[in-house]
Design a protein around this nucleic acid. Structure first.
Length: 206
DNA sequence: GCGACAG
DNA sequence: ATCTTGTCGC
């Protein structure tokens, strides 16, 4: 009888809790703030959130974003009381020069299922997807499929979805659409963006 | 060699 | 990422 390691399994049970993470940077200092927001996929209701301050410890280098954001993202996720079934990242998963973007990195370090939703193209070629919400096209490089260019809102610029860790492209696509009932980006990402940005405007904690 | 380059 | 004014639409 075939045995399978949990570590290698994809998320195959209906996920209930989805978390979204994001980082905001101060313009003229090294201060940064990360936020993690958890939403119940069945109801769309926010369950909880965690906001943590930090300092920039690595420069922005295309292809190395994980080294800049993963540290504080781990702290933010650690501040959650609930364990999310899947984590949505602001950036790419395997659609990366080395096939190991931020979402992959965060997934391996936490053991949690993850995938990325990026706002702009990075690597790979694609055809413009249909104009309606739900329409998508493959993001490819040669023969390999790196992700999907997904239209989350009719007549709105598409987002780039790619698998991170222990998730399938189909599931990532479904969750992205479920979390984007009204706006272009998933609600968990929007919320994490708002919370981190708002906290960053607050004076530092002496 | 030159330009492009998630956030 | 952040900055940045106006503009178009519900």
């Amino acid at each position: 009888m075939r045995q399978r390691l949990d570590l290698d399994d994809c998320l195959d049970v209906a996920p209930r809790l989805a978390a979204g993470v994001d980082v905001s940077y101060h313009k003229e200092s090294s201060r940064i703030v990360a936020a993690a927001v958890v939403i119940d996929l069945a109801t769309g209701v926010e369950v909880e959130s965690a906001v943590v301050p930090g300092q920039v410890s690595f420069p922005y280098v295309p292809g190395l974003l994980a080294f800049r954001e993963v540290p504080i993202l781990l702290t933010a996720l650690g501040g959650l009381r609930h364990r999310p079934d899947v984590v949505v990242c602001d950036g790419y998963g395997i659609a990366h020069p080395r096939r190991f973007g931020l979402a992959c990195h965060l997934g391996v370090l936490t053991g949690l299922p993850t995938f990325g939703v990026a706002k702009t193209p990075f690597v790979g070629a694609y055809d413009e997807p249909g104009a309606r919400r739900g329409d998508w096209s493959a993001l490819c490089e040669g023969d390999e499929v790196l992700g999907r260019v997904l239209r989350t809102q009719t007549d709105v610029k598409p987002v780039f979805v790619s698998v991170g860790h222990r998730t399938s492209l189909d599931l990532a696509t479904t969750i992205t659409l479920d979390l984007s009932p009204r706006y272009r980006l998933p609600e968990v990402i929007r919320r994490a963006d708002f919370l981190s940005r708002e906290a960053l405007r607050r004076p530092p904690t002496p």
